[in-house]
Design a protein around this nucleic acid. Structure first.
Lengths: 231, 231
DNA sequence: AAAACGGGTGACACGATTGTGACAATATGA
DNA sequence: TCATATTGTCACAATCGTGTCACCCGTTTT
């Protein structure tokens, strides 16, 4: 399990939203819902989703318009779109794909089909997650080999601690509250005690101990945690 | 990107040719168009393309016939083929892959998907065919003779394990998820359980056991597998 | 000074992930 | 055609990872 994926669904029919929400939730995705285009843009500006499920028939501005606007904006250009069309609307499909959609599903669809499409599109859209080795104060983390080396000592680390450390190293010198960390590493819809963060911080520090790089993770009392090379 | 790649599209519907042409042009490929099989052969004799996009439903000789002829000729045998099929034509896909196609795309398709497939196929096709002996930490693999030698012990290995090992050895020190491995070794068209990867990893390790080179294949829990000479 | 708070830490149970042998279906080759 | 390999799946076992909890100890508040 790599990073947690967020999916935005833009769909005015609530039953469908709920069914999708249920299916995706169980499969470990975070779901953000929007009932119309305006709401969708709000949600997008809040947090950029990894994929957009877009109904083609919407009140107000249509799905196609939404897709075009997404493709026009540098920020949202690369977010893949899967569109939901009514049965047999061939023209919709064609115009949708031209507007930049990556795939479509014909209503009614099964959760299984939905999952298959989403997985396939996500896989194709983000082939290389991120770039090379991240280094902070001599601590090196390599996403490609999934390895952490401190000085010249290997750091043995579990998946969650890896994600935690990776997140901290890409945002050094910044404090994050437990809530923020839960959001970004566990995912928005995970119901997990805040204290769990403490435990993982502890485990991360322990894992870093042999290399002497514990202490990089600092506690900011009453606020949260921070990775910092300064004392 | 050093070399400029030439792609030949064989497709009788002009709108599709134009859409593809537009997409590929922007991505920096040279495109040669052909409306039927005869034209296609003319173009091929003019300049050998790096990849052929082949519609399966063509006037006159069908796509499958074209593919067969390509595979029969020494010159064109190694040019990868991506076929374009209508949705749900399962038999087409099967017969197509049997006839030597490397991948397929179902119409209608998005430019993004098209690009992804083309890139993937080209990547798979070009670096693999140059064949020196690959060696990692004393484990030698010869693509030509299809043999693996560890230290001085012969490694007995089946076709799938050979491909697996070959892939790992050309990408050492990198983690690959089960999904990635399925994509790149089994190909996108196979529906195969993810756990099947585990079984083949096991078989590969067993095959390597006599030479002591098991342990080269490491498990990265929660992520995937990696070949590494480091512990 | 006592109580409340915030965080560190070890233990533990549960679930998730991976290893492994067996099996049926299929492909391959004599 | 028959014998042999190969392959994908499954069921079960072995490990490992994760989230909670209880308890401790300093710090801050009352």
């Amino acid at each position: 399990m790599a990073l947690r994926r967020t999916i935005l669904i833009v769909e005015d029919e609530k039953p469908i939203r709920e069914m999708v929400s249920f299916a995706l939730g169980r499969a470990g995705y975070d779901l953000v819902e929007a009932g119309d285009v305006t709401e969708a843009f709000e949600q997008m500006s809040q947090k950029l989703p990894d994929l957009v499920l877009l109904d083609w028939m919407l009140p107000g501005a249509s799905g196609i318009e939404f897709a075009r606007r997404m493709k026009r904006d540098e920020l949202t250009r690369d977010v893949p779109i899967v569109m939901l069309t009514a049965r047999g609307e061939e023209e919709d499909k064609v115009s949708g794909l031209e507007a930049g959609a990556d795939d479509y599903i014909t209503k009614p669809f099964s959760p299984r089909e939905l999952m298959a499409r989403i997985k396939a599109v996500l896989r194709r859209a983000s082939p290389e997650d991120e770039g090379g080795v991240i280094e902070v104060a001599g601590l090196k983390l390599d996403p490609e080999s999934h390895r952490v080396v401190g000085g010249d000592v290997d750091v043995e680390i579990g998946p969650t601690e890896f994600r935690l450390l990776s997140f901290f190293m890409t945002h050094p010198e910044r404090v994050f509250s437990r809530t923020q960390l839960l959001d970004r590493i566990w995912g928005r819809n995970a119901y997990v005690e805040e204290r769990t963060v403490d435990v993982h911080i502890l485990r991360l520090r322990k894992a870093l101990l042999p290399s002497g790089f514990d202490g990089l993770i600092q506690t900011v009392r009453g606020v949260g945690y921070r990775l910092s090379s300064k004392t």
